[in-house]
Amino acid sequence: MLHRIIPILAAATLATTAQAGEVAPGDVKIVDGAIAASLTGEPGDAERGKAAFVGRKAGNCLACHVVTELLDEQQFHGEIGPPLDGVADIYSAAELRAQIVDSKVANPATIMPAFYRETGLNRVPDAFKGTILSAQQVEDIVAYLGTLKGE
């Protein structure tokens, strides 16, 4: 079912490892549903974030979420997660960061992957060891989500 959403990667790995100056996945602290500080120490880039948000080998967020402003350029948004239109009006960057890093902290039953966690997983092939997104990608997506405000 997921074959169109999450294409299998041939050799290149998406799995990433933390770079110097970044908060490593094991060191991230979610406090009251939020991560206050940037994982990279810098603000993300919304334009790059949009690419990572859409990319099927990156966040692939449209697999589950609708973003109305992207419907013209990307067909078939999924419907199993909440629509993200206006999400920046509801949640702070710190809350959005926590949701992307590990949404299971807030909701253990969620289908949503933890995009910046590399432990507590089963049967992960070597090619996918590590986190789904890099710290930079998380920050870039947080920045993109920050642009999704109501009219």
């Binding site: 079912m1 997921l2 074959h3 169109r4 959403i5 449209l62 697999a63 589950c64 067909q75 078939f76 948004h77 999924g78 419907e79 199993i80 289908i111």
Partner: peptide
């Protein structure tokens, strides 16, 4: 996660059975 909790809904263009 897909076939019990969300069957009948779409993940991208895929209709979950």
């Amino acid at each position: 996660n897909c076939h019990q909790d969300y069957y009948g809904m779409y993940i991208r263009a895929d209709h979950l059975s």
